[in-house]
Amino acid sequence: MSESFSTREIMIAAAAREICDGEVVFVGMRLPLVAFAVAKALHAPTAIGVFENGVLRDRSATQPIVTMSDPPNLDGALACTGLLEVMSLLQRGRIDLGFIGGAEIDRFGNLNTTLTQGVRLPGSGGAADIASFACRTVIIMMHEQRRFQEQVSYRTSPGYGNGADWRTRIGLPGGGPSKVVTSLGVFGFTAEGEMQLESLHPGSSLDDVRANTGWPLLISADVGETRAPSIEEIQLIRRFDTLG
């Protein structure tokens, strides 16, 4: 049994599978928000969502939201606190998983959302904090060569720095990026902190990935194909992803 699906849908499905039941998840907007709703409906019913504006939820919002501060994200919330409270949860090590994205990423999973090729981007928001503290982060990005640079021109959100034990040396308590979910595949990180291809989405090739990555990419020995979204996953994604 198979159903056709979009790139966006397989990215959401792959992200949702990274959420484990019982985890406390720092949820972002757009794709991670849908991934969180799908995971809660499917395999992580007791996961808790934390939003950087201060909102804590144990159920997904019942109406579509564009920002985390839209009233439907407050209705039925467990708690409405503030930045200091949720950032303290992060710093205290109480957040299992955080989702972040960026305009540029490099081979060690550092992200740039501040300044690239002369373009002033909006900045960190809470991304640098999530990258510093979450026990692990999952990065979601479109896979384009201009975004996958050997070294980011500005390091907004720290990944593994320049590799190896950099995070420990620099004093970052969180675990760093565990996965990168792109429009072409899913990537993990080696013990040295370097990004490595783990699976290709159906229909994308190694050549596509290499052509869109600005450094000689490590390829896992057992690289496979990203599991296509099940019919159940697709139905849930389409139910929750109403804003596209």
């Binding site: 200091l84 950032m87 928001g125 809470g126 510093s132 503290f133 004093g171």
Partner: peptide, 28 residues
């Protein structure tokens, strides 16, 4: 970052010159 901004305001609110944090080490 969002955290450092709220810490900067919290320090002012508390009447102290700074607050310490572990966030954004190694960030530009």
């Amino acid at each position: 970052s969002n955290f450092t901004l709220v810490l900067a305001l919290k320090a002012a609110a508390m009447g102290v010159p700074f607050l310490p944090t572990r966030t954004a080490s190694g960030s530009d």
